[in-house]
Design a protein around this nucleic acid. Structure first.
Length: 268
DNA sequence: ATGGTAGTCGCACTA
């Protein structure tokens, strides 16, 4: 079977539920992971997705900020949400697909990290680094290692490669592309032996973006994007990926999220 | 060096 998975920071699931349905109809993913649902637990608009052919959903929500979810046309089990940094933040949910391969899919929303890239001066940046530290420990010692085939998706709020940003040089001191964050993200990736499949399927010199700021007058014309959204495949799945995609045109839809969906298709 | 936009616990904060 083929398995198409997508990940999208939606920036309010209630506001953009119809936009999600439009995306589902056009791209036909089997599973969509969501971040920044900004929706209290229990108020996830699951009915509209069920009508669109996606009756299965998992959510980890909170009021106002953050929030993650997964919607699927394939049944799943083992919903789990991990807590990070001793906070109640809704930044992770995972499920296990009810298919022979029993693939676990994670939806992560890594802290953005504020403006100043210094853990001593900025507690949001400290939180971001601490979150990644815990993520590295978690998969080294616990969950991910013993859980079977896995896919890690989400808004990781870091653009690691020099061609994951519009200007490597101009963004070196901008949170999301600083060397300390990139090294930390690489440590996480190594700990889980993940493949960053969107970058692996592109040419090294190809620019890849999944986010364009709302603050730009014309996102398309200035094209100052960053690749903050990721799909990582574990060792057992990386050779099963047959294609990847970034749904760039979605950024031009009416009332868009500032992020666009990223996708990977596997042949199992 | 600054400001630009969007969303929600909206008259302040986060991204």
């Amino acid at each position: 079977m083929e398995l198409k998975i997508a990940s999208w920071n939606i920036n309010s699931i209630r506001l953009r539920a119809p936009t999600v349905v439009k995306f589902l109809k056009q791209w036909q993913p089997d599973v969509l992971t969501l971040q920044e649902t900004k929706c209290p637990q229990g108020q996830f608009p699951s009915g509209i997705f069920a009508e669109a052919g996606y009756p299965y959903f998992a959510e980890k929500g909170q009021k106002g900020h953050h929030g993650v979810g997964i919607i699927s046309r394939i049944p799943f089990t083992d919903r789990h949400s991990e807590q990070f940094c001793g906070k109640d933040d809704a930044r992770h949910v995972s499920i296990k697909l009810d298919i022979p391969d029993k693939i676990t899919i994670h939806s992560f929303y890594v802290p953005a990290g504020g403006d100043i890239p210094d853990v001593n001066e900025n507690e949001k940046f400290e939180h971001k680094i601490g979150f990644l530290d815990q993520l590295e420990q978690w998969q080294t010692h616990d969950h991910i290692k013993t859980t079977g085939p896995s896919i890690l998706t989400g808004d990781l709020n870091i653009a690691p490669h020099e061609n994951d940003v519009w200007s490597h040089k101009q963004l070196l001191k901008v949170v999301s592309h600083t060397p300390v964050e990139i090294e930390k993200l690489e440590a996480v990736r190594r700990a889980g032996k993940w493949s960053d499949i969107l970058r692996d399927f592109a040419e090294q010199d190809e620019k890849l973006y999944s986010w364009w700021s709302y603050r730009s007058k014309d996102w398309q014309k200035s094209n100052r994007g960053r690749r903050l959204d990721h799909i990582w495949l574990d060792e057992s799945l990386k050779n099963k990926c047959i294609s990847t995609d970034i749904a760039t045109q979605v950024r031009g839809w009416e009332k868009p999220s500032d992020h666009v969906p990223v996708l990977a298709t596997l042949k199992l």
